[in-house]
Amino acid sequence: MPHTHPETELHNPQSTKPPLDPHLKALENEAIHIFREVAAEFERPVMLYSIGKDSSVLLHLARKAFYPGRVPFPLLHVDTGWKFREMIAFRDEMVEKYDLDLVVHTNPRGAAENITPFTHGSALYTDIMKTEALRQALDAGQYDAAFGGARRDEEASRAKERIYSFRTPDHRWDPRNQRPELWNIYNGMIRKGESVRAFPLSNWTEVDIWRYIQAEEIPIVPLYFAKKRPIVERDGMMILAEDPRLELLTGEAKREEVIRFRTLGCFPLTGAIRSSATTLDDIISELETATVSERQGRAIDRDQAGSMEKKKREGYF
């Protein structure tokens, strides 16, 4: 029996937005096709929801794909306990507003063994609180397909990942032995315990995400927009200093700066950028002239050689 939620018919107010340009429309069509295919072929799909801009686009596309029905699968948020406060508030607001089913999971080892990004370093912390936590949550839900918002342009090892990315029962990815993927025909055949990670945004770039957010008026966490915020500088990154758990080290001082975030993860591992972009137009024009990639602000990509590929083999998204 497929794992479906009671479907109720939704009524959307007629939109007055102008039609999407053909480029974004083509990307949107492809993503909707993938959503529908996975929902039809798998028994227990789930959508990984990280609350960031890509997740916001993913959620919007899921709502479009199944309209006038509800989104027919739950959202899963792996909460490390170290997310930005505004992210959690935004998540709960979305769930309420769009009538979504949300599953939140935190690795119990975090509290039991007091694992923090400060005490254990970014590599071990990420392994336990993100990768291991995700595996726990996927096992607990017996999910056979998980949607993720990863894009191929983000990072070198992602450039070769399939849209349906096959995982063994212990959630491993074998980059040397991926199923060939031809046309838009996806192979969803798996054995019990195996699963597929599905990536509807594979062919989107960062600029596409922002232009789509603008065109479709998609709500996003306010941390993406520039504002005067308290920060502390550490290891060459500007970290948001609003959480009482952030202890200042010798020589560090809190100060206020006009900043924003280009990507959002765990606040101690995500660096802010100096920016005065307060609107989507500002963000897009800033991006078009940007000289660094978005993941430059992410500590976890750089903590060891080939680090994202290694994390992915072990089950990280």
């Binding site: 479907e7 109720t8 018919e9 529908r36 295919e37 039809a40 006038p68 029905g69």
Partner: peptide, 10 residues
């Protein structure tokens, strides 16, 4: 790909 039946009327 999929038959959508969110309610009796649709």
């Amino acid at each position: 790909q999929r038959v959508s039946r969110p309610g009796e009327s649709f």
